[in-house]
Computed example of a mutant assay.
Amino acid sequence: MAVAVLAPTCFAGWLGWHAVAGGGGTGGRTAAASTPAASTPAASAVPPPPATSEPPSASPSPSPSESKGQGQGQGAAPAGRPLAGRTVVLDPGHNPGNGAHPAEINRRVDIGSARKECDTTGTETDDGYPEASFTLDVVRRVRTILEAEGARVVLTQDGDRAWGPCIDERAAAGNRVHADAAVSVHGDGAPASAHGFHVILPARVVSGAADTTPITGPSRTLGLRLRDSFAAATGEPFSTYLGHDGIDVRDDLGGLNLSKVPKVFIECGNMRNSADARRMKDPEWRKRAAQGIADGLTAFLTGPGR
């Protein structure tokens, strides 16, 4: 996900930017505030963690829907459904309000191996469709599918926060509920000539608060299941600009570095590429994208050894 207003001027320059970025999504952004996503009924979101000597974020007080994030008011998953008893955390990348809160999202937080910006604004299509609106729409669709299969689904935010959450909060969301799997959904902002999707796996990072050693193996399995199901559901080709065969491995993303549960990112397409952007703006394509993500999670959670 690249700068929403100032697109990279050349691919080489973008690659250099991408290598050093890595906030809440896969790169740093500075842009004007995005338009809010369409409203849907509120659902589970994770409340901010307890204060520490350095709070993970200076976030607003939790909304009523956030306060129910630990499953209060939710019945047990119906037995007999394929995901009964499973907990999934879905992380819609960025927030439409981030651009109006530069001081908050630019504050650096600890990701173990480095300090990164709390969050970023995300990218957008050339005609102004924001990544943050795309990700929230897709995640809500995934939630509906997974809940029908019996899963408990927790969102890191559900359009009920003015900005954020910070990247360390996003990782903490899965850790706090002991999620069986977590997926962060994004759209990228690469040069316009680049297209396709890729899944980002956590590299082995052991530094400070970060230790991904226990999750690199299961996260890879999750990532491969997600890659295959997303390609089958959407017909989107593998990325032409990053990774290999639709898979990339990174050590600079706080959402992965701080996770204690199997977790991956998916860049559903390049919002700066005209063909990818056209698909990502299409509600029917987003429906297929959500199905692909849900299918990948289901395959991982019901597969051998799960």
Rank of each mutant, 00 (worst) to 15 (best):
A2V: 11
V3K: 05
L6S: 11
P8G: 13
C10I: 01
G13S: 11
L15N: 06
G16D: 10
G16E: 06
V20C: 02
G23M: 00
G24L: 02
G27Q: 09
R29A: 12
R29I: 03
A31L: 05
A31R: 00
A33I: 07
T35G: 08
S44T: 14
V46D: 07
V46T: 04
P48E: 08
P48M: 13
A51F: 10
S57H: 05
S61A: 12
P62A: 03
S63D: 10
P64L: 00
P64H: 01
S65A: 12
G69S: 02
G69P: 14
G69L: 06
Q72N: 11
Q74M: 05
N95S: 03
H101M: 07
E104T: 04
I105C: 00
I111R: 10
C118S: 15
T121D: 10
T123I: 05
D126Y: 08
D126R: 13
A132P: 12
R141I: 14
V142L: 07
T144V: 15
L146I: 13
E147S: 08
T156Y: 05
D158T: 02
P165R: 00
P165W: 04
P165K: 01
P165N: 05
C166H: 07
D168H: 03
A173V: 03
A181C: 14
P191A: 04
A192G: 11
A194H: 05
F197C: 10
F197P: 01
G208W: 15
D211F: 05
T212L: 14
T213N: 15
S219K: 09
S219Q: 13
R220W: 04
L222P: 00
R227A: 07
D228E: 15
D228W: 04
S229D: 12
F230M: 01
A233F: 03
G235L: 05
G235Q: 02
G243F: 08
H244Y: 08
D248F: 10
L253D: 06
L258T: 10
L258D: 13
K260D: 14
P262S: 08
V264Q: 13
V264G: 02
I266Q: 02
R272A: 13
N273S: 08
S274R: 15
A275L: 10
A275N: 15
R278I: 00
M280G: 05
M280Q: 07
P283N: 11
R286G: 12
R286V: 02
L297I: 15
T302L: 09
P304E: 13
R306K: 12
